[in-house]
Design a protein around this nucleic acid. Structure first.
Lengths: 128, 128
DNA sequence: CTGCACAGGGAAAAATTTTTCCCCCTCCAT
DNA sequence: ATGGAGGGGGAAAAATTTTTCCCTGTGCAG
């Protein structure tokens, strides 16, 4: 486990929320589980461009944050499934809001990003 | 400017949204501007625990993403103010949703984080 | 016995973001 | 002519996150 050198500021609700869903692949993983792709192997298959190790790390974090929990079936061979906790379920609509905003504005955001036009608007003061 | 070696995936709305507001101090900066602390010096004062350089970098990013824009008054000495663009304003309610979820759940999230109880629930399959 | 699906993790490298340390400029008041 | 407010940025270090590589098991089918 990596040990932080600078303490996190977690008073701010937004910081907490982003900590939980801000990881690089968190959203995709959450989306898998939401679509009932619950088993590690299934998630690995769905996200084949991401290394299994990475997905496992993110799953562990989501678990540590209490967003998902693990069901280990006492079968042989063992079967594992991830399910949302109540708090985990409660973040889904929040993600939807974010997702919608992003989709509505992604062309704009990415355009601004490219153009990079620092032609900063210059104004005279009206109240001279 | 840092040049990415791994391309970003920006099809996903959520990735875009987090790219925009996910920076370490973005939320605080946005909150300043929302509270009409618009001038760099004012923001620096408000966020005195953060180095001015860092704030400037984040401001630049917000500007590049088209969330805020810069008004440079043709006064002497020059005065600068940051204002939200229309798209910038449209993200404020989104941030509120995130902030609310975070505040409602931060004790829970931080508790889970500490406990770290990987006592994974074990189940027998009901349908044996 | 070999190979494959399944679940998982240590260690180190690479990539990225954040931070520190200094530097530049202009104007204005002392 | 010195200092401070006000706006800004380069370069490198430090911190953090992401990635790669490789290794550990079990059980089951050929």
């Amino acid at each position: 486990m990596y040990e932080r050198k600078i303490p996190e500021l977690l008073d701010c609700g937004l910081a907490v929320a982003i900590k939980v869903i801000g990881g690089k692949w968190k959203a995709w993983i959450i989306d898998c589980i939401r679509r009932e792709i619950r088993r590690p192997s299934g998630i690995h298959k769905e996200m084949h461009e991401v290394a299994p190790r990475i997905i496992n790390l993110h799953l562990k974090e989501l678990e540590d944050h209490g967003i998902i929990f693990k069901k280990i079936y006492a079968e042989i061979p063992a079967r594992v499934e991830y399910w949302f906790t109540d708090v985990g379920s409660s973040i889904l609509p929040v993600i939807d809001v974010l997702e919608k905003w992003g989709n509505d504005n992604k062309e704009y955001i990415n355009r601004s990003h490219e153009n990079y036009q620092s032609e900063t608007c210059v104004f005279k003061r009206e109240t001279a």
